[in-house]
């Protein structure tokens, strides 16, 4: 494998990791602050993608589409927090899983009802549709570079929000002791709605960004949700830093595994069986990574016991 191809694959791994981070950040915030397992997080990702496709269809503007996706996902998040999630904080995790699974079904079928069963059209803006030439002669799609940039900006913003703002302090305090910050006069239910809407908006942004290069269809969120859970387990539940590191690890392992493993096996196996073994192992690679991390750090890389 040439060095150029290798660097391109590393970029691909980074880009997929950054997207996973946007999903995992919301999931881990919601779990860390409210102790809630939200299976419907993938639905919010789907809401973002569908809202972006609809707005892009009406207006033709990609920027407006992204704004629409953020707004729609945040609104959907706030609404389900107020109507459903709020009643689940004191319940068992199993009840939360059941209720949020029901939300997945409701979101999926209402989306089908509104938009139909056929995938929607959403494309990258014309200005970013081609590849750009990076130093070293690497051709790389401009849109994927944009995704990496947006993801890094959001990550920086999120760290600043958590570490430096008043809301961030309240969020961190809520994670540590929710009764105490209620006693100190912080409106805890408003804080929860806010955190939930923030997590939802991040998922919606990921859905819209990814929707432009993937298929905008009902059920698109669930495969990503599973990966996001793997990320937060690796990174440590509740930790934003863990989500970032975990997401990058998963993105790189997944991408490089699917490329390098078949090559590795073909060095001592026959071509067709090398492809078969390599493809099978690469599908497992992130779960092997997760198992390996949990073996040495049972609470995840940045998790607290």
């Amino acid at each position: 494998m040439s060095p150029i191809l290798f660097i391109e694959q590393v970029l691909n791994g980074l880009q997929s990791g950054i997207m996973l981070f946007l999903m995992a950040a919301g999931l881990t915030l919601i779990f860390g602050v409210m102790g809630l397992i939200n299976l419907a997080h993938g639905s919010l990702y789907m809401v973002g993608a569908f809202a972006a496709a609809a707005v892009a269809g009406w207006t033709g503007s990609f920027v407006l589409a992204l704004a629409g996706a953020l707004a729609a996902a945040a609104a959907a998040g706030a609404v389900i927090e107020l109507l459903v999630i709020r009643r689940l904080y004191d319940r068992d995790h199993l009840d939360q899983v059941l209720a949020t699974f029901a939300l997945i079904l409701i979101f999926s079928e209402s989306t089908r009802w509104l938009f139909g069963s056929f995938p929607l059209y959403l494309d990258v803006p014309a200005a970013l549709s081609g590849p750009v030439r990076l130093p070293g002669g690497i051709l790389y799609p401009a849109y994927r570079l944009l995704i990496i940039a947006v993801g890094l900006v959001v990550a920086a913003g999120l760290f600043a929000l958590i570490a430096r703002t008043r809301i961030g302090i309240q969020i961190r305090a809520g994670e540590a002791d929710r009764e105490m910050i209620g006693a100190l006069g912080v409106d805890i239910s408003k804080l929860y709605t806010l955190v939930f809407a923030l997590g939802a908006a991040l998922a919606g942004l990921a859905g819209a960004l990814v929707g432009a290069i993937q298929s905008v269809q009902v059920g698109m969120g669930e495969p990503v949700l599973i990966l996001a859970f793997v990320v937060i387990v690796i990174g440590g539940i509740g930790s934003i830093k863990g989500a970032l590191v975990g997401a990058l690890l998963v993105g790189l392992t997944d991408t490089l595994g699917s490329v390098l493993l078949p090559i590795f096996f073909s060095s001592f196996l026959e071509q067709s069986s090398a492809t078969a073994v390599g493809s099978a192992l690469s599908s497992m690679s992130i779960y092997i990574l997760m198992a390996g991390v949990l073996l040495f750090k049972p609470t995840g890389l940045f998790g607290e016991a």
């Binding site: 391109e8 691909n12 997929s16 495969p223 492809t275 493809s279």
Partner: peptide, 21 residues
């Protein structure tokens, strides 16, 4: 080359790089 992807895979950046090469 013969490449088998994951069922339900949504991102093909890695495969596209192989196709390019």
């Amino acid at each position: 080359e013969e490449v088998y992807t994951k069922l339900g895979q949504t991102d093909y950046a890695a495969e596209i790089a192989q196709i390019r090469a």
